[in-house]
Design a binder for these strands. Sequence first.
DNA 1: GGTTATTGATCAGCATACTGATCATCAGTA
DNA 2: TACTGATGATCAGTATGCTGATCAATAACC
Lengths: 155, 155
Amino acid sequence: MREPNEMPGHLARRFQQIAVAVFLAEVEDAGFDLTPVQYAALATINTNPAIDQITLAGLIAYDRTTITGVIDRLVQKGLVVRQTSSRDRRARELTITDEGRKVLRKITPAVEAAQRIMLRGLSEAEAAELMRLLQKAIAAGNELSRAPLREGTTG
Amino acid sequence: MREPNEMPGHLARRFQQIAVAVFLAEVEDAGFDLTPVQYAALATINTNPAIDQITLAGLIAYDRTTITGVIDRLVQKGLVVRQTSSRDRRARELTITDEGRKVLRKITPAVEAAQRIMLRGLSEAEAAELMRLLQKAIAAGNELSRAPLREGTTG
DNA sequence: GGTTATTGATCAGCATACTGATCATCAGTA
DNA sequence: TACTGATGATCAGTATGCTGATCAATAACC
């Protein structure tokens, strides 16, 4: 059997594990209580007012059933409002609140710091190359997960 | 705000998401029902007979509380035996069963195939470089998660 | 030897993530 | 307009992953 450290799947999980831990630590140090998904959803709702949940899920490549719970918690925290769309009563229109905008603005430095910390072992050039390779591998495998990225599906 | 595709944390999650989906699909096609963690645990128990759960968790960089549940399911499936150690009655000695060995042997081609598929967008050189950079970033961030890799802590 | 600290394991509780099902609503069509 | 299919959202159920607490057993120390 191959060493775990030589298996891409193991490395993927491990890097993601560290990335999440760093994110949560930085955000907590900044005095906030937001998970990576919650941040991604909040930021995307901010730039796409009145977005529905399916479109949101596609833009950040999350499963729709996961998004339901994530939005529950963002609403619970008062950062997002969820209301039935008048044009399509199946859909829920998501809107960021003033409080949500405030949190988003204040939390950004911590999020950026986290991105740097999770790459702290790499030089600038190496970090750029890692991101390029991840993007390429992800693009090739996009359709292989249940929650592929769906760009510009804005409805 | 940065594009999600330019944030290392987002790329980490996305790549891991695809890696897990590919793993599960290949393993299921081969007629098995094992998750990535379950496979990692089973393979590590196979090469480290009578290992305890903490040491196992360290070798594959999983949280100890997660391992408890993973072992529960491996025992349930009849692939692993868990028994109290006679030398240290706090510890549980984990042993692979004949059935576990059989599954491990038969499942290996599917696992290897999954590793190739998740990198199918990259050339050989690119794949090698991606793995090198992930290893380097992970090594630098090893202590930042609750479940760091603990090599050779056997005993 | 008795007290303290540490360690292996488990548990409660929470938040992703997934599969597959259900429900309400909408769109397309005869 | 009735029928069919597709779509947005939710739910039940399962499996990671995590935090923090608890418990039993061992180790360390005086």
